[in-house]
């Protein structure tokens, strides 16, 4: 089954909607609570990344019997140095974003920690694609 959501850059108020909806579905599918938690945390981080850095984005979720694959695509500045971005604590978030309690530099590291597989594709000046995969068992 598939789910699609749109994310608006800069809209911190509504960040978290896709992850809540995905959680609702996973709960109804009798998925282990710990796995649901991992998926929700990873997706929420990815959402906040789009909200904090990009102009707009989409979340495409695909769920089958054994796994959930989430593709978050954004139109934004892209990531100049992926290795640096993956480093815990490294952040390029603006001061105003950090004042709102975001941008602690844990986004990508947290996604990696909470997924079974993760791919990152980015083009500076164009945008970023994050693909996350979690198995149900």
């Amino acid at each position: 089954m598939k789910l699609t959501f749109a994310i608006q850059g800069g809209d911190f108020i509504h960040a978290g909607h896709p992850s809540s909806e995905v959680k609702k579905v996973l709960k109804q599918l009798n998925i282990d609570n710990k796995i649901i938690k991992n998926v929700v945390i990873a997706l929420y981080e990815a959402e906040v990344n789009v909200v904090a850095h990009a102009y707009s984005g989409t979340v495409n979720v695909e769920i089958d019997e054994n796994k959930i694959t989430i593709l978050v695509t954004d139109e934004g500045p892209g990531i100049p140095d992926i290795d640096l971005a993956m480093k815990p604590g490294y952040s390029t978030a603006s001061k105003s974003v950090q004042e709102m309690g975001f941008g602690a530099g844990m986004g990508l590291p947290n996604i990696k920690k909470n997924t079974d597989e993760m791919w990152l594709e980015t083009e500076v000046g164009k945008g970023t694609k994050v693909k996350m995969l979690n198995y149900f068992s």
Binding site: Q28, N30, I63, E65
Partner: peptide, 13 residues
Amino acid sequence: IFGKDRIKAMEKI
């Protein structure tokens, strides 16, 4: 609410 069978539940959702 859609039963415990995951595949059937997915179809229902």
